[in-house]
């Protein structure tokens, strides 16, 4: 596992821009510079899309960088090491939200809802993207249908999560908001685990 994480880390270090973008986005958002959802949603969407794309590329490399598969590393480890990164990103996002909530002493329920929905979203989107990558043969990388499917699912998820967040923040009762957001997070985690299991199963049987 450590070898795999180091292999990916060497790649990711060159992509630090993505992490910086995410940090700047959240810093602007929580300090109310980006409170208007007309501005925040497109920026948030593109940031998350870039992150997802990076994660998908990481999964794609497992097939194209054939040398990985020559090392004494189980194929399941290769898959699961990739699935660790969205969890780290989700954790990072949650941490940023908590820190900002402490600094600005704002609405704790709102922060909880944000954490649950944002983290759930990043897990589902990244999980779906990776599952797609690990499930198709490397030669079908440019498969247009798969790409359209990913974009459609991604857009639907983002729009859905924005609507759910708005509903929970402004219309739902305190108990309902907490209950629904926690359930949404647990549901996303379960879905994420299912994506990881499908990816492992498919990748183990794949020709590299």
């Amino acid at each position: 596992m450590k070898a795999m994480l180091m292999w990916d880390r060497t790649h990711i270090c060159k992509r630090w821009v993505v992490i910086v973008m995410l940090a700047i986005f959240y810093a602007l958002r929580v300090t109310n510079f980006l409170s208007d959802s007309v501005v925040a949603v497109p920026i948030g969407m593109s940031t998350q899309y870039i992150i997802t794309n990076e994660i998908m590329i990481m999964a794609y490399r497992s097939k194209t960088e054939k040398y990985i598969n020559v090392l004494p590393i189980q194929r399941s480890t290769i898959v699961l090491s990739k699935y660790l990164y969205p969890v780290l990103i989700a954790g990072f996002m949650a941490l940023l939200l908590i820190v900002t909530a402490i600094i600005t002493r704002i609405n704790w329920i709102g922060t909880l809802i944000e954490i649950a929905i944002d983290c759930g979203l990043i897990l589902i989107v990244c999980g779906f993207g990776m599952c797609l990558e690990f499930s198709v043969n490397s030669r079908k990388r440019t498969h247009f249908g798969g790409f359209i499917l990913f974009l459609a699912a991604y857009t639907a998820l983002v729009v859905g999560s924005v609507m759910l967040t708005d509903f929970l923040m402004y219309y739902a009762s305190y108990e309902a908001a907490v209950g629904i957001s926690v359930s949404a997070l647990i549901g996303s985690m379960l879905l994420y685990a299912a994506f990881a299991a499908i990816s492992t199963y498919r990748f183990q049987r794949m020709d590299i």
Binding site: M6, W7, T10, H11, R61, E65, Y67, V70, L71, P72
Partner: peptide, 30 residues
């Protein structure tokens, strides 16, 4: 058993790696 195999392909490591990176990764793989 792959611990006993040495494999040479024409393109083994990504272009952005250095030999030091290779050592760090292999140290944990083999």
């Amino acid at each position: 058993i792959k611990n006993d195999l040495g494999v040479v392909f024409d393109k083994a490591f990504p272009d952005s790696f250095t030999a030091q990176n290779v050592n760090l990764i292999m140290k944990h793989a083999y």
